[in-house]
Design a binder for these strands. Structure first.
Length: 710
RNA sequence: GCGCCCGUAGCUCAGUUGGAUAGAGCGUUGGCCUCCGAAGCCAAAGGUCGCAAGUUCGAGUCUUGCCGGGCGCGCCA
């Protein structure tokens, strides 16, 4: 497969619309006023250079190299730096330096730039018009519309088995998924967030077996238990006990099989208990995720996919197209199978003609994937294909919809239903996406590849391309943390760099435990520092800090990396951490609060004040300091563009951290309130107003809010 | 066996359309609170970017081979 480098189809077309108002989970205020950032400047510069390449060297646009835009290592050398002269040196048989000189000369004055000059080594160094740049970004802007319509995008994430408490591995999934949602919305993409609930699987069956056979309690007893605050914790332990129970005597697995069967068929006490457990656990998961500022638009229940015969329809289509066919001999005789393309094409577009017809020869074993077992039941892949077809609107069937709960923002959270009596008129339209992202860990890569293949084999090559597996590595435990949890590793494991989390064994850090611990730590610290705050404010702030700590922690690693979760590291609020970022903005906010207090000047006034001032404060060594932070802040749109293109969120995390660092450095070096020179003070205030808005926006993309005090 | 991912400072990691002296946090050492909040700032020490070839004006980044580690390849999900 393409590994970590799938590209969403629209990623090469930058657009600059900013709809920050839609980002806010808690606030509806647009933190950056929809101001333009750096990408429009890139665009303008690129266009100007391209025009000169044609003019001076007769290079038609098609013959030109891609004009990359870098940043000069420091502000004295310039702001943007273009190495295009190196690229052209051979073709033009000229030294890079000479080309750069000619280009600089030909470029003359470019709108928005103070000057563009050739560096001795051949770079084209571009100096922005600092005052104009900053001033333009301080003015309120009307956001542009969304991108050219590509249809909506569905992001599926979380999808925790509804049979036990969520753990840190699930947090990584949800944090990545939710950040993806925020980042896409930032770019103006309409996004529908779905959480898939596997309510009819083995895992739920196992917990039901636990209640029915191990604990031997009634449906009413379970209902009473489920009303307890942390029912999911109870199930966490029970699930581990059931696993042990099976292991002690393998014949007991027959009990599981029967439970699973009953649950799938419905209309019996076991199924009723399964439904009760799943519903209660899902509600617990939603609470856990809400603590992390994560919400969904739709819960998709696997049981509804079964009951509404989505699979039957998908199966018909697949049979009709010959994508899935009945194997008549060999070890898979009696199964309906799909041909697997193990070829080098890696799931790209041209799979279409393969597997479209009749009887592929079964030479090697392993070239076919069972979709329907010889006993007539459908595998997980089959159900997933049906779901994926529905997501793209290719199934010709739809769910019924019911209100499931109310989200943190007051909007309804919808769930699928197969019961016409519960269908709620006026529900939004779900499904029918142009692009889907499935946020699932890397171990599912093989199956996600099959999913793409199924789409491609059906002739839906465009949907196959836009069916994106957002994969990421596991969260494991550091040895130190595993030890704290009372885990004594077997001899083999000691050598491994980390300890694998196991829901089955009940080994792992529960999400709510982690949040509790973080909140307790943060809250006591907030109380110590701000004794005047009310208990409510202290608690809220503690929670906001806890969220920042976890979410930043989950985002800062690249997704291809196993996180060896270490509790002490996660609890650190210093250095490269979420709270560090919040702290920087809190400080900036304090400056503006004090400014208002002392001079009556609000932020709008600060932003406006600068227009009539000379730009001296932005030049020279002193000016470089402020300008450097402003320029860095402006790069958020560029960073987001890269993040969506590469699906690598560490870039966003590092950018925000770097910006906070730059601000903190500036903060110590260059006072605002105590600055004597009025124009210097005004420019600093204006620059920092922009910086804090951009940093706030960046934090918002990570689901982090900025407390009033901390 | 085949496929995918990872290997960068003592530790944990950024560095993703190849671009100017390889960065950060933690840890270590030494400084900075009558001055917008020290969850902070400044400074020092610390690197054969796993190894070897290759492509290129230019390689941590691309290609090939090798070494070390992880994951996947079920009529499980």
């Amino acid at each position: 497969m393409e590994g970590g480098h799938q590209q969403p189809p629209d990623s090469r077309v930058p657009h600059f619309s900013v709809r920050l108002s839609r980002l806010g989970y808690r606030t509806s205020k647009d933190p950056s006023n929809g101001a333009p950032m750096i990408l429009p400047v890139h665009q303008r510069l690129r266009a100007a250079i391209a025009a000169r390449l044609t003019e001076v060297y007769g290079l038609a646009p098609a013959e030109q190299p891609v004009i990359t835009i870098d940043y000069a290592p420091n502000r004295e050398l310039g702001d943007l730096a273009v190495p295009v002269a190196f690229e052209l040196a051979r073709r033009l048989r000229k030294a890079p330096r000479a080309i750069a000189l000619e280009l600089a000369e030909a470029l003359g004055a470019v709108d928005g730039f103070a000057r563009i000059e050739a560096a001795p080594n051949g770079y084209l160094n571009c100096f922005l018009d600092r005052a104009a740049f900053l001033t333009a970004r301080l003015l309120p802007q009307t956001p542009a519309g969304g991108p050219a319509d590509q249809g909506k995008t569905i992001v599926e994430h979380t999808a925790i088995n509804p049979n036990k408490a969520a753990h840190i591995g699930h947090i990584r999934n949800s944090a990545l998924g939710d950040t993806l949602v925020r980042v896409l919305r930032f770019r103006g993409v309409p996004v529908e967030v779905q959480n898939y609930i596997d309510d009819t699987g083995v895992q739920v069956a196992d917990v039901v077996v636990g209640f029915e056979t191990l604990e031997q309690i009634s449906l009413d007893d379970v209902r009473a238990l489920a009303a307890q605050p942390r029912f999911d914790y109870h199930c966490w332990d029970l699930y581990a006990r059931v696993t042990e129970w099976y292991e002690a005597d393998k014949t007991r697995l027959a009990v599981r099989l029967k439970a699973l069967h009953d649950i799938e068929h419905g209309g019996n006490p076991t199924a009723a208990m399964g439904a009760l457990v799943a519903d209660a656990i899902v509600r617990r998961h939603l609470e856990t995720m809400r603590r992390l500022h994560i919400e969904y638009d739709l819960l998709t229940w696997e049981g509804d996919i079964l009951r509404l015969k989505f699979w039957a329809r998908a199966f018909e289509i697949l049979k009709q197209q010959g994508t899935v066919y009945l194997q008549t001999d060999g070890r898979l005789a009696g199964c309906w199978v799909m041909a697997i393309d193990d070829g080098e094409s890696g799931g790209q577009g041209e799979l279409g003609e393969q597997g479209g017809s009749g009887e592929p020869v079964d030479e090697d074993a392993g070239r076919e994937k069972v979709i329907v077992r010889s006993n007539g039941t459908v595998t997980y892949v089959g159900k997933d294909i049906a779901y994926q077809f529905w997501k793209f609107g290719l199934l010709g069937l739809d769910f019924k919809y019911r209100r499931f709960a109310t989200r943190g923002d007051g909007q309804p959270l919808w769930a699928t239903t197969s019961d016409a009596a519960h269908d709620t008129p006026g529900h939004p339209t779900f499904g029918g996406a142009g692009t889907t992202y499935n946020v699932i860990d890397v171990r599912q890569s093989y199956l996600q590849k099959l999913l793409k293949q199924a789409l491609a084999a059906m002739g839906h090559t465009r949907q196959a391309e836009r069916s994106i597996h957002f994969s990421y590595e596991m969260v494991a435990l550091s040895h130190a943390t595993a030890r704290v949890l009372g885990y004594a590793p077997p001899a083999d494991d000691v050598k491994k760099p980390f300890v694998e989390v196991s829901g089955r064994k009940g080994l792992g850090v529960k999400a709510d435990d982690l949040m509790d611990l973080l909140e307790r730590t943060a809250t006591s610290e907030v109380f110590r520092r701000n004794p005047e705050l009310s208990a409510d404010e202290v608690a809220r702030t503690g929670s906001e800090i806890a969220v920042a700590a976890v979410r930043y922690f989950m985002i800062k690693y690249s997704r291809g990396k196993v996180i060896a979760f270490d509790i002490d590291e996660a609890l650190s609020f210093e250095g490269e951490s979420g709270p560090y970022l919040q702290y920087a903005v809190v400080r900036a906010n304090n400056i503006f609060a004090k400014l208002k207090e002392r001079t009556g000047q609000d932020e709008a006034a600060v932003r406006a004040a600068v227009e009539t001032l000379s730009a001296d404060a932005l030049t020279g060594a002193e000016g470089d300091e402020l300008w450097g932070v402003v320029l860095d802040a402006a790069r958020l749109d560029e960073v987001v563009e890269q993040v969506v293109r590469t699906l690598e969120f560490s870039v966003l995390a590092k950018h925000a951290f770097g910006l906070a660092q730059a601000f903190n450095g500036f903060y110590h070096k260059a006072p605002i309130l105590n600055e004597e020179r009025p124009d210097v003070r005004a420019w600093r205030a204006a620059g920092i107003a922009y910086v804090r808005a951009q940093l706030t926006a960046a934090l918002d993309l990570m689901g982090i809010v900025v407390p009033a005090r901390m």
